[in-house]
Design a protein around this nucleic acid. Structure first.
Length: 278
DNA sequence: AACGATCCCTGTTGGC
DNA sequence: TGCCAACAGGGATCGT
């Protein structure tokens, strides 16, 4: 699943392809891909057509591209979205919902079977009304200090796992890396966020840093089903690094206890009862 | 305000 | 073997 590491890898590839280049022949094929522009593919096409991209940025799991003329392109990979960059000569992949030829002749396309992702072009007012405006500090580029995080979590009764998925306290973690970071920090995912000590929060921030760094270095996590793929078509190699995610019923690599799975906020949470505590 | 539930969607998987 | 229900989950929205 695309989370911060996968989006960051995508950002780097996209930056190579579109920074400073112009969008030509924009085509949006699916109303759900355009749902943040009223579900009208023509709006995305018209707003993007002929515009020149600035530098591709990332905030949490959102990709943000400033455009000349003042508007901003925002894209999200959702569950199954991926960008592809090629010469446009080969066959189009199934579920290709966005295609744009750039002014150097390369072709950027967005492939998204489950259509949880989107491509949008916003003016300044619209930009403020999206989830982007509600994001907390980026977990990788601008992680919060221990004291900042403590303030945000003070009094919160929701499980720390739910708060990590919320993107408000800290932005970029999804189900895989939230579980992995909590394991590394030795924290039970059900622990109310407000009950974590400063020591635990410091450990959690360190664990997040390590988990994200490892995943980015390995090109992200490609699961075996709807594979997340890098924009050049390769698979990420982080799967074998996972300690708890997807390992329910198997022994913990560290202590041998059986990895457990519980549902938190309608998401499965994997953890080791031997290593993780409130 | 905080929190949980529900919905969206389709490829894959597991049970019968 | 074949069919179909269940499952996976990021974010938006809504109800409590």
């Amino acid at each position: 699943m695309p989370e911060l590491p996968e989006v960051e890898i995508t950002r780097r590839h996209l930056a190579d392809a579109i920074d400073g280049r112009r969008f030509m022949d924009v085509s949006v094929r699916h109303p759900r891909t355009a749902r943040h522009n009223g579900g009208d593919p023509a709006v995305v096409e018209q707003r993007l057509q002929g515009r020149k991209a600035g530098n591709v940025a990332r905030h949490g799991k959102f990709l943000v591209v400033p455009l000349d003329g003042g508007m901003t392109m925002v894209a999200h990979l959702g569950m199954s979205g991926r960008f592809r960059i090629d010469d446009g000569l080969g066959p189009e992949a199934p579920h290709t919902h966005f295609v744009s030829k750039m002014d150097d002749g390369s072709v950027v396309s967005f492939i998204d079977p489950r259509t949880f992702g989107f491509v949008a072009v916003f003016d300044e007012v619209e930009l403020e009304s999206t989830g982007l405006a509600r994001l907390g500090p980026d977990a990788w580029e601008t992680p919060p200090s221990v004291s900042d995080l403590a303030v945000v979590l003070r009094g919160r009764k929701a499980p720390i796992k739910a708060l990590l998925l919320d993107q408000g306290p800290i932005a970029g973690l999804g189900n895989i890396y939230a579980d992995e970071a909590l394991f590394l920090a030795g924290i039970d995912p059900r622990t109310p966020g407000g009950e974590l000590t400063e020591d635990q929060l410091e450990g959690l921030l360190t664990a997040i840093r390590l988990v994200l760094a490892g995943a980015i270095e390995k090109g992200g996590t490609s699961l075996d089903d709807l594979a997340y793929l890098l924009p050049d078509g390769r698979a990420g190699e982080n799967l074998t690094s996972l300690q708890v995610y997807g390992r329910a019923g198997e022994p913990c690599f560290r202590c041998g206890e059986i990895i457990d799975k519980v549902v938190i906020r309608a998401r499965s949470s994997h953890f080791c009862p031997g290593c993780q505590h409130g």
